[in-house]
């Protein structure tokens, strides 16, 4: 046998060995992953589109009741360090030329065409039939591409182990999360969000939540009667959250 053939056989044998060694653990992982089985509830309906209207003229500057309400409902700590998750935040907006200033709550805008859903490699970011944009905690690999893509900076990455989750709001290290329109309430048949309840309890009544597809809902009636706007409306994302007075 020529030297070249011996060399080649040795090489092919080596490649095969490396290939098998690399494939074995992957095969075992596949087998383990296939074991899981979860029962789903009834699917979300496309006959509704959940939306929110914020009347910034009623929103109190310095008031953060909505933020606290959200934190409590979803089991967030309320910390505001650069690595802490914040699903909703109060933004103070000031026109530097006129000094006109107002404040508003900013959260996931539940876009009809969400950039976060577009860029997510695994489809973990998804939009339900009823318009709620969510992160599937089982599919999120923590690449943070959605955070790069979101024009509203609405998403947070979990930087450390989480131990105090609420049963209805699964959260965990290494995944991305954001406002879910209190999906656990919606799916339990409630029709208000925690931020809205907190705002009402404070007496501001600045937040309306409801079905945008139902012409008789309070939110639809208000949207039909008063001018409202989407933040960064030029992006044409058709957000589920609209603002009055911006």
């Amino acid at each position: 046998m020529s030297g070249f053939d011996t060399y080649r056989r040795r090489f092919m044998g080596g490649v095969l060995g490396v290939g098998v060694t690399a494939a074995l653990p992957a095969g075992v992982l596949f087998w383990q992953t296939a074991e899981g089985d979860v029962e789903d509830g009834p699917p979300a309906s496309g006959k509704v589109r959940w939306g929110m209207l914020v009347d910034t003229t009623k929103c109190g500057t310095g008031c953060d009741a909505c933020v606290r309400g959200c934190d409590q409902e979803n089991g967030l700590s309320g910390n505001t360090s650069p690595t802490s998750p914040q699903w909703i935040r109060k933004v103070q907006v000031t026109n530097p030329r006129t000094d006109y200033s107002f404040s508003l709550p900013m959260m996931c805008q539940h876009c009809e065409e969400p950039p976060c859903v577009d860029v997510c490699p695994t489809g973990a970011s998804f939009r339900r039939a009823d318009g709620i944009v969510l992160v599937d905690r089982h599919l999120c690999i923590g690449c943070r591409y959605c955070m790069m893509a979101c024009p509203y900076k609405a998403r947070s990455f979990i930087h450390h182990p989480v131990t105090d989750q609420l049963p209805e709001v699964p959260r965990g290290i290494g995944c991305v999360e954001a406002c879910s329109f209190c999906v656990q309430r919606i799916d339990a048949g409630k029709r208000t969000t925690a931020c809205q309840d907190a705002c009402n309890a404070e007496g501001h009544q600045a937040i309306y939540f409801g079905d945008l597809k139902d012409p008789n809902s309070e939110i639809s009636q208000r949207l039909a009667s008063y001018g409202s706007q989407e933040v960064l409306s030029s992006l044409n994302l058709h957000t589920g959250v609209r603002y009055q007075g911006i």
Binding site: T80, R89, K90, V91, Q92, V93, N95, P96, M106, K153
Partner: peptide
């Protein structure tokens, strides 16, 4: 064109 501030 506006100035914005927040805890985030």
């Amino acid at each position: 064109g506006m100035e914005v501030s927040s805890t985030f």
